[in-house]
Amino acid sequence: MSVTYQDPPWIARLVEMAAQGAALAERMNQPDVAANGALMVKLAREHGALEKLLKPFREYREATRQLNETAEILADPASDAELRELAEAELPELERRRNELLDELQAKLVTGDEAAVTSVIMEIRAGTGGEEAALFAGDLLGMYRAYAARHKFKLEVLSLSASDLGGVREAILNIKGDEVYMGLRFEAGGHRVQRVPTTET
C-alpha cells in the first residue's frame, strides 16, 4: 500500500503567497516599474518579506516530492532490491527534514503579524538610585545602540534627558528594521544591577 504525504490544510495559505510572490516578481520586471524608483523599492520590500516564507516553502515542497517518490519505490513490489534498500535508508531523514520545515513554516505564519512590525518606540527611564541609576540607564542605551547596529536596525533618539555625570534620566527611542518587534518584544519591565557604583570609585 502506497503512503502519500499530504499537505496540511494551512499550506493553502502559502500556495496563495507563492502566487503573490510570482505576481510581484513579474510586476517588478515591467518597464513602468523600473522607471519608478519609489514603486520599485516598495515592491522589492514586499517581495523580500514574502521570500522569507517562500524560500523554506519551496524547500518543503521539494522534500515532500522526494518523500512521495521514495514511498512509491517502497510500495512497488517490482522495485529493484538495491533501490529499495537505498529508499529505506533515505526515508527517515526525508521525513525529519519535512517535519522540520513544517514546524518552521507554521511558526513563521503564526508570528507573521508580529514580524510585519518594522518600527517600535522604546522608553528607558532611570529608576531609584540617583546618579548611579542614571548611569546604568546610560549603559542600557549603549547596549541597545549596539544591538541595533549589529542587527542593522535604524535607531533614532526622539528625546534624551541626561544626568550631571553623563548618565540618562530618560530616553525615548524609535527603532526601525525588518522584524524589529520580534527581536525586542520581550524587552519590558525593570532591570536591576548590583555592582560597585561608578559614583563611589
Rank of each mutant, 00 (worst) to 15 (best):
S161A: 14
A115N: 11
D103C: 07
N174D: 14
A149M: 11
G167T: 09
P92G: 06
D32C: 01
A171M: 04
G130K: 06
L39I: 06
I175F: 05
L54E: 03
A71M: 10
Y144T: 08
G190E: 14
S159I: 00
P31W: 12
T4D: 12
I121S: 13
P8V: 11
H151E: 13
R192M: 12
G142Y: 05
V110A: 11
V33Q: 02
D178G: 04
A148W: 02
Y60M: 11
N29A: 15
G183C: 07
D113P: 01
S163N: 08
P77E: 09
A171C: 07
A137Y: 06
Q20H: 13
K154H: 13
E170V: 02
R58C: 03
L43D: 04
M122Q: 10
P197W: 12
A89D: 15
Q20M: 12
Q66E: 13
R58Y: 08
E132L: 06
L43H: 05
N29Q: 15
R97S: 10
L102F: 09
L101R: 05
T118E: 13
L50C: 06
I175H: 03
F136Y: 12
K52N: 06
E62I: 11
L105G: 01
Q194V: 15
E82H: 05
E123I: 11
T118C: 12
M17I: 05
A19D: 14
I121F: 10
T64W: 01
Q194M: 10
V196W: 07
Q66D: 14
G112W: 04
W10A: 09
L158K: 12
G130I: 07
T198C: 00
L14C: 07
E51W: 04
G189Y: 11
